[in-house]
Simulated scan of single mutants.
Amino acid sequence: MRLHGKTAIVTGAGSGFGAGIARRFRAEGAEVIVADINADAARAVADDCGGTAQTVDVANGDSVAEMIDAAIRTMGHVDILVNNAGITHLPSLMEDVSEDDFDRVFAVNCKSVYLTARALLPHLKHRGTGAILNIASTAGVSPRPKLNWYNASKGWMITATRAMAVELAPMGIRVNALNPVAGETPLLKSFLGEDTPEMRAKFLSTIPLGRFSTPEDLANAALYLCSDEASMVTGVCMEVDGGRCI
């Protein structure tokens, strides 16, 4: 029960890494807001793990503010925020990605971090404590061709994490990130372009440990960084990648 008495919001928690993190946080004693743009998916995960479902569009300021207000009303306060919601564009030459796809990737992957910070930081600063975890990507460390603007959005997230950590440390607020390699999540097909045995084998050949990441892998790392065991850890962007970035 490493999060006993803690409260957490996990965005994009209706599937994939977010669902794994929400379930693990609940198993370790935290109250959890399972937030996702897909209301049915959020409700299913919340019902399964005993959390509270919340519909949110992380790219919309009013929706994010409503999520934070609902979390404080429901749980009394917020200790942990996991910015997990994210999307990608399909593999394509950088000049062929549409402007709409570019805007959507940066709205969901980058602007959302600003919007959640704007809505939650007054509360965390008033309490003098808190942990924020941003789910970035190995794409922001070791970019892959034809995912250029997704790579750039995750690089932005890594820099934002470090900048937030420096500014918020004097207020008792820690900010870290995880950089997962592609995993068994709904985004895998988008990363690969097409989910075939050949494409999987080609991608796995770039991962020294020889497998994709799992929601459990990310949940284990997230649990450490958001727990009191990591009270001296801030500004860290930890690879969970089977050696992909070595």
Rank of each mutant, 00 (worst) to 15 (best):
R2D: 06
T7P: 06
G16Q: 00
G18Y: 01
I21N: 00
R24G: 00
E31P: 12
V32K: 10
D36S: 12
C49T: 08
N60C: 13
A70S: 14
A70D: 12
H77A: 14
I80K: 00
I87G: 06
H89E: 12
S92G: 09
L93E: 11
E95T: 10
V97I: 10
F102P: 02
F102H: 06
V105C: 12
A107N: 14
N109Y: 09
Y114F: 15
T116W: 07
A117M: 10
A119K: 02
A119S: 14
L121A: 01
L124S: 02
R127G: 07
G128W: 14
T129E: 12
I132W: 02
A139D: 13
S142C: 09
P143C: 10
R144N: 13
N148S: 15
Y150A: 01
M157L: 15
I158S: 12
R162S: 05
V166P: 14
R174C: 03
N176P: 03
E184C: 07
P186A: 01
L188M: 06
S190A: 14
T196H: 04
P197Y: 04
S205H: 03
T206G: 01
P208H: 07
L209V: 13
N220P: 06
N220M: 11
A230Q: 00
G235Y: 05
G235T: 02
V236Q: 15
V236P: 14
C237S: 15
D241I: 06
G242E: 00
R244N: 12
R244C: 10
C245T: 15
